[in-house]
């Protein structure tokens, strides 16, 4: 089963994926799919606007390099600011999901 990524969590997922390694847009999508064991299917159409947004905010930095077949490809790296942001987002998310968990499993 596949699930669309919740509104607002896409940024967090991208940052998480980039915290593992520097990679290109496709790589990020692959990471998210793999880490969620194919449950989370991000819309490729919203991946790039999100990357653009994160880059503008200085949370990730993009670098043009060469792909394996000698074509131009853009590689993204998590910046220090992005790492700090990811940390606080992760905490918030854990609190939130634990709370939802508690509500949903009570009674």
């Amino acid at each position: 089963m596949q699930t669309d990524v919740l509104q607002g969590t896409l940024d967090m997922l991208i940052l998480k994926a980039l915290s593992l390694e520097t990679t290109h847009g496709w790589g990020i999508a692959q990471h998210i799919r793999r880490l969620s064991r194919d449950v989370l299917q991000i819309n490729h159409g919203s991946l790039y606007p999100a990357l653009q947004r994160l880059e503008r905010k200085g949370l990730v930095s993009g670098e043009w390099g060469e792909s394996e077949n000698n074509r131009r490809a853009k590689f993204y790296t998590l910046t220090a600011a992005g790492r700090r942001y990811l940390g606080s987002e992760t905490q918030d998310w854990q609190r939130f999901s634990a709370a939802v968990q508690m509500v949903m499993t009570s009674a």
């Binding site: 819309n43 490729h44 159409g45 919203s46 790039y48 606007p49 653009q52």
Partner: peptide, 18 residues
């Protein structure tokens, strides 16, 4: 198809340029 229309992605990116 994964993009749900390339143009939408493009417009989205343009929007994000601020």
């Amino acid at each position: 198809a994964g993009f749900g229309g390339l143009d939408r992605a493009r417009e989205g990116m343009r929007d994000e340029r601020g």
